[in-house]
């Protein structure tokens, strides 16, 4: 099977020259069963066409840089095995719902802004001095938010979210899931500070629970669940007496 080959079709877009993106086809050797889509792109870049642009870093599913659309589904290309597609061709396009900067590279500015806006860090009303020792948590308290803390900011959920695609003002899955991660943390006291972003018309209320964000998440985070639970919790804050007090 030394001469097994696979066809990779990749989006090409040069903002200086092209009006809109086009697909370019590359026929490359599929030499090793453990090859992933990112390996194929790296092969193209070093042996066929050095001008192909894409983001990548760790190639082990933890940095969240190499997210692209593979045959219509948002994937980390370092974790998408060619053997799952061969002998069909593999079409690699940039992540949906983001502006394309060049080839397979998208502009992540909007996501970064949203991520920061929900204050994804532990907020204390009063910082405990370092000398007072660590904040201790029980396993149950960690269990409350652990799942939501696995997010690697790869933006696959934004690419899968039609609500974000239809209106970029939507705060989006990962940002809300991370907000919930901190709201559920027993060490955090910032729920009220995050509330204005979360409960804004462009926040949780825009989500219509398509659920595809949770399907594509490579880290098993369930942003759809986080958003619906946040809707319910936020509603209860205002419906229950004294629910809005800290």
């Amino acid at each position: 099977m030394a001469d097994k080959r696979i066809t990779i079709r990749a989006t090409r877009f040069d903002p200086e020259k092209d009006k809109s993106p086009r697909l370019q086809s590359y026929d490359i050797p599929f030499s090793d069963d453990s090859m992933v889509v990112l390996d194929a792109l790296n092969y193209i870049k070093s042996h066929v066409d050095g001008s192909l642009s894409y983001r990548w870093s760790c190639r082990m599913g933890i940095c969240g840089s190499c997210g692209m659309t593979v045959n219509g589904t948002p994937k980390l290309t370092c974790s998408a095995f060619l053997r799952d597609y061969w002998p069909r061709s593999v079409t690699v396009t940039p992540l949906n719902n983001f502006p394309i900067v060049r080839d397979l590279v998208v502009d992540m500015e909007d996501f970064m802004h949203k991520l920061k806006s929900i204050k994804p860090w532990i907020i204390r009303k009063q910082e405990i001095p370092l000398g007072a020792g660590e904040h201790r948590q029980t396993m149950d308290q960690i269990g409350e938010f652990r799942q939501f803390s696995q997010c690697i900011n790869c933006m696959l959920c934004y690419a899968a979210c039609p609500v974000y695609g239809l209106d970029n003002e939507f705060l989006g899955p990962a940002a809300i899931a991370l907000a919930r991660r901190y709201n559920l943390d027993s060490r955090d006291q910032g729920t009220k500070e995050r509330l204005p972003m979360i409960a804004h018309p462009d926040g949780i209320w825009e989500c219509s629970f398509v659920g595809e964000c949770s399907v594509v998440c490579p880290k098993g985070v369930d942003p759809a669940k986080a958003i619906q639970q946040t809707k319910l919790d936020t509603t209860m804050r205002f419906v229950l007496p004294y629910g809005n007090r800290e």
Binding site: H113, S117, P196, A199, H200
Partner: peptide, 17 residues
């Protein structure tokens, strides 16, 4: 996106949801 200083919980949205 507008700055978050001006953001307040959307109580109407909350009610309809």
């Amino acid at each position: 996106m507008t700055e978050q200083v001006a953001r307040r919980p959307a109580l109407a949205h909350l009610f309809w949801w």
